[in-house]
Design a protein around this nucleic acid. Structure first.
Lengths: 218, 218
DNA sequence: GTCTATAGAATGATAGAC
DNA sequence: GTCTATCATTCTATAGAC
C-alpha cells in the first residue's frame, strides 16, 4: 500500500507535533488534522490522548533499547572501556535513523525525562528499566572505586546532560532540516558528549563528602 | 501588616503549584483558590497567566543573579580556580534560602530550561544574559586551550546537568519537607556537581572532532 | 473502520457593581 | 482593589449513522 495506515499516520503526526509544541499544547484536533484522519480515530485506535503519548514512545524506544543492548554485548565481548560503554548507551538515541526512527523524536526522548508528566515518566522508566540496570552494572565494573550510591548520582547527572541536550532548542536547530546522512551531527554530538561524561564519571571523589538528609521537616 | 499583600500571595501559590504540576496543568482557578484570593485578581495584578509566570521567575532570579555576580567578583579577587567558578555559578540557585527564596523554586528554575515554553525560555534567557556572558569569559580564562566554540558546547552540557538535577523528580524528593538549615542538601549536591563538571570541562579534546553541519535539507 | 455531531467539562479573560 | 457573574473558547471523549 502506498498510504500508511491510520494508526501509523497518527503516530507520525503526534510525534512531530509533540516534539514541536509539547504534550499539553498539542490538541487531538491538531494531531488528527495534521495526520489527515478523523478526530474520532485517536480514541478508536488508542483509547485516549494519554495512551497515544505512551504509544509514541513505545514505538521508538523498543528498537532503540534493543540496539543499546546489542551494542553493550558487543562492547563487553572485547575489552570494555568507559568510553565504549558511554557510546553504546548514548549513541542509539542520536542515531535513530538506523533503527527506523525520526529525527524529531530525539527531542521527544529528552522531553520525556524533563517534562513534568508523571504517567509518561513512569512509562518510559519501565521501558528503560532493564537496559539501565544492565548498563549500571557495566559502568560499575569500570569504576570499581566509586561507591554504588555515588555512581547512581553521577549517572543521574549523565542522564541530565544527555536529556537536556536532546530536548533543548539548540538541538532542534541542529537537527531540523538537516539530513543526518550527509552531515553526521549525531556523531559530532556523541564525540563531544563521551569525553565530557567519561571525565566526569572518572573524577576523584572529594575526601569529605556531606551526606544527603532526608528527614522530614517538623 | 500580618498578611502578605495579594500580589505576593499569588506569586507564592503560583510558584508552588507550577513546581508541582507544571505550567500547563496549573489553572488560574487553582492558583487563586490556593492563594485565598479572587479569581479576577491575577488578571488585575499581572494582566495574564503568561505574565504571571514571568513574574514568578523575575522575583527569584534577580537576587540569585546578583548573588552569582557577587560571588564571581569575590572569586576573581583572589586566585580563581575552575572549581570556585563553578560553585559561584551553581550554588546560588541551590542555596536560595539566603536570597529569601523558596525550596520549591529550585525545581522551577530547572523547568524553565527544560520545559517547552518559548516565551518563558526567552524571558529567563534575557534575565540571565549578562551573568552568563561574565561567567563564560571567566571559564574561558581558566580553560585557555579550549576553543571558544567547544567551550560553549560544554557549558551547554553543564547547564543540562544542573537544570535536570534541579527539575527532576529526585530533586523534589530530596528537598521537599527537608529543612535546608538542618540538613544542608544544597551543599551536598554542589559538592558532587562541582567535581563532576570540572572534570568534564577539563577533559582533553579528541584529536579528530567532526564539525556540526547546519545546511538545510533539500 | 470511518465519519458527523455533540455532550460535558474546563479554561483564560473580562464587564461592571461595590 | 475586590468581588460576582459570565462570556467565549477550547478541550477530550463518545454516541450513533454509515
Amino acid at each position: 500500500m502506498a498510504e500508511k495506515d491510520t494508526k501509523e499516520r497518527i503516530l507520525d503526526a503526534a510525534e512531530e507535533l509533540f516534539a514541536e509544541f509539547g504534550f499539553a499544547h498539542t490538541s487531538m484536533r491538531k494531531i488528527t488534522s495534521t495526520a489527515g484522519v478523523n478526530l474520532a480515530a485517536v480514541n478508536y485506535h488508542f483509547g485516549s490522548k494519554e495512551e497515544l503519548i505512551k504509544a509514541v514512545f513505545t514505538r521508538r524506544l523498543m528498537p532503540i533499547n534493543a540496539e543499546r543492548l546489542r551494542r553493550l554485548a558487543e562492547v563487553e565481548a572485547g575489552e570494555p572501556t568507559l568510553e565504549a560503554l558511554l557510546e553504546a548507551f548514548i549513541a542509539p538515541h542520536l542515531e535513530m535513523k538506523e533503527a527506523g526512527g525520526n529525527d524529531r523524536f530525539v527531542c521527544l526522548i529528552g522531553r520525556s525525562y524533563t517534562d513534568h508528566a508523571p504517567l509518561l515518566n513512569e512509562h518510559v522508566r519501565a521501558l528503560n528499566k532493564d537496559v539501565v540496570a544492565r548498563f549500571k552494572a557495566a559502568f560499575s565494573a569500570q569504576l570499581p572505586h566509586l561507591p554504588r550510591r555515588e555512581l547512581s548520582i553521577r549517572l543521574h547527572f549523565l542522564v541530565g546532560t544527555v536529556a537536556y541536550t536532546m530536548a533543548g532548542p539548540e538541538m532542534i536547530h541542529l537537527l531540523r532540516g538537516v539530513r543526518i546522512s550527509e552531515g553526521d551531527n549525531a556523531k559530532a554530538l556523541v564525540e563531544r558528549l563521551v569525553p565530557f561524561l567519561a571525565a566526569g564519571l572518572r573524577a576523584p571523589l572529594p575526601e569529605q563528602l556531606p551526606e544527603f538528609v532526608v528527614s522530614r521537616a517538623s
